[in-house]
Nucleic acid binder design. Structure first.
Lengths: 158, 158
DNA sequence: TAGTTAGTTCGTTTCATATCGAACTAATCA
DNA sequence: TGATTAGTTCGATATGAAACGAACTAACTA
């Protein structure tokens, strides 16, 4: 029931990272980190409550968020009412898809900004155009790379 | 003094994007968006206060944050006490440097997680290794790309 | 020197969001 | 059927951050 110090600290570190990158609440981040660092068998709701020292209600709502985002999944054992949670099979794929969306959104914004400045602040646009287009093509490249990797992951799945 | 509806809406859109991506407060994000979408001459403190309909104190502290992060800079005109703020010359470069750091951090975390699971959850590690290594090399590639673009920007500066 | 102006400081207020706990539901068990 | 258990719901509390406003400083100006 007690975690090693090494694991505790790693949960904290990964948790903070997830908070920042995935916009999850602190507890959701810690739970997700815990499951990332645990065996593929997963953990029961109760065990998560005890390990995290958090209330049942907090764990319940945060687990539901993680389920909705498809970051985790659950399974049941015959003759056992409990649900067992684990990281979803392809959570790295989800992470990358989110990154792709975020980059695409960034690209759309940059394009809008450049367009607006070309129309309304021509002097500024001229000054920044070369860097702006460099940035645009950089974003395009990154999106391409990510999609490429996603198709490779798709192959792995089969 | 009044902004066009088009500009207002774009400030909102870019502002929300900056809030999410750059971890800036709402007002800091809006001020930064305003300056991104304004002429290279920049805007005085007073004009920013009026345009944003925010208090002097809020504008003051948020501008100082943006200055510290080198997202914006200011200049003065001889015989004019006011300070004029504009986006810093190479703010896109700063953006990319931040992205590079964030990717490097992500890579270090993923490596730590993989290492931990290899030691403590061998079954899970085996199951996820191929995807994990694919992800690792993907992150490496992205970091490489970003550094490459940064050196190209460096060339532009000269 | 007295008045004005640009911008800052700092204590207070407002607001959002995370977590909690007690009461509840629905399924299982004896 | 009555008791137990797994998990949810929902109103209350706590915490932290953002924005505010009044008072202040420091520089200029008449």
């Amino acid at each position: 029931m007690e975690l090693s110090d090494e694991k505790k600290q790693l949960i904290e570190e990964v948790g903070i990272h997830l908070e920042e990158r995935a916009n999850l609440s602190p507890l959701a981040s810690r739970i997700y980190a815990l499951l990332i660092l645990s065996s593929y068998d997963g953990m029961s709701f109760e065990k998560i409550v005890n390990t995290m020292q958090a209330s049942k209600s907090s764990v319940s709502s945060n687990i539901n968020v993680l389920l909705q985002l498809h970051f985790i999944e659950y399974y049941t054992k015959p003759g056992d009412r409990k649900r067992y949670f684990r990281t979803s099979d392809f959570y790295l794929k989800n992470t990358m898809e989110q990154q792709a969306h975020s980059l695409e959104k960034a690209l759309r914004i940059v394009q809008k900004v450049n367009h607006f400045n070309a129309d309304h602040n021509p002097e500024k646009f001229k000054k920044e155009r070369s860097m702006g287009s460099l940035y645009e093509s950089h974003l395009n490249e990154q999106i391409e790379r990510i999609n490429h990797t996603l198709t490779e992951i798709e192959k792995l799945k089969q």
